[in-house]
Amino acid sequence: MTTDHPATSKRSLFSFFAQYRELALIGFILLLIVIISLQSPGFLTFDNFQDILLNISILAMIALAQGMIIITRGIDLSVASTLALVAMMVSFVLKAYPETPVILIVLLGIGLGSVLGSVNGLIITVGKVPPIIATLGTLSIYRGLVFFYSNGDWVNPIDLPSGFKQLAKGMSLGLPNLVVVAIIVAVIAYVFLNHIQAGRDIYALGTNPEAAKISGIRTQQVTFMVYVISGIICGLAGVMWASRYEAAQTNTALGFELQTVAAAVIGGVSMLGGIGTVPGVLLGALLLGIIQNGLTLSSISQFWQLAVQGFLILLAVISDATIQRRIKTTMTRGFAK
């Protein structure tokens, strides 16, 4: 009857969209590539694509963390402030001790980021403050600390040793180091979310928090963990940012947090929790990067960039919601809340 037939017949259609949402994104990206390359011949070159990858690497890394948090029904608005604070602090250390080995700086950045992330995690799990409020608060606090720390000053390219500048820009395996780092982060994230117990628990927690508790998943620890991971990735990203732009400014990555949410949402992460994949988020970031690049190259004014980005987010959300709703009417009944 209804519980069987419509569900089975429509299951294929729905799971097609659910599983191959990435395919739809790829199709859209290919379409964009064709359109842009017809407009501007400089687009379809190896160098330009390397440029695009370089530009989206940091966004992609943080969007992965953001996506992971959104899967647990949370949100981390403090990512950009965390990144900026870490970038400023490691730059200061480099300014004072230019001889510090780069690897130590990377570890320092990760360490600092993990502290900032665990503060978020503690406020949310122990303090029982809703994630949006907690991270909205630390967004202000961490950004304020950047100003306080530097007295409003910037760290300029002159102050940074050249070895450090090579961290992001140097090449390995034929790609810029920053891109390689982003790929490594993505691979780790993929393995973690698909093949590690704790990673799978993130999905379980997001899709049904009550059931997760009953099934013996330590929900508080899992929640704490995702914010610490987010802090770690932001710390790493902060170091890479300082290296790539050869500077640390008080307004580093200002407003970047909403871009990371946008990349995750375009990539198919559901704000209702439980749904989202690593390839999807990466494609979301890639889409944003291609649009940014394409607009810069083509004759369209760069002032359209933000508007197009916003339009795309809306488009992704609207199409997702429409598909979901159409499917829902034919889905198994009785599964409410």
């Binding site: 909403l258 946008a262 704000m271 359209w304 933000l306 508007a307 916003g310 809306l314 959300v317 609207i318």
Partner: peptide, 23 residues
């Protein structure tokens, strides 16, 4: 209409409207 969290929709228009200001 879409029954989507307001956070998501207004995140989109947050970028879109500001973008229109630049346009």
């Amino acid at each position: 209409r879409l029954k989507v969290p307001a956070l998501v929709i207004t995140l989109g228009t947050y970028a879109f409207y500001r973008g229109m200001a630049y346009v």
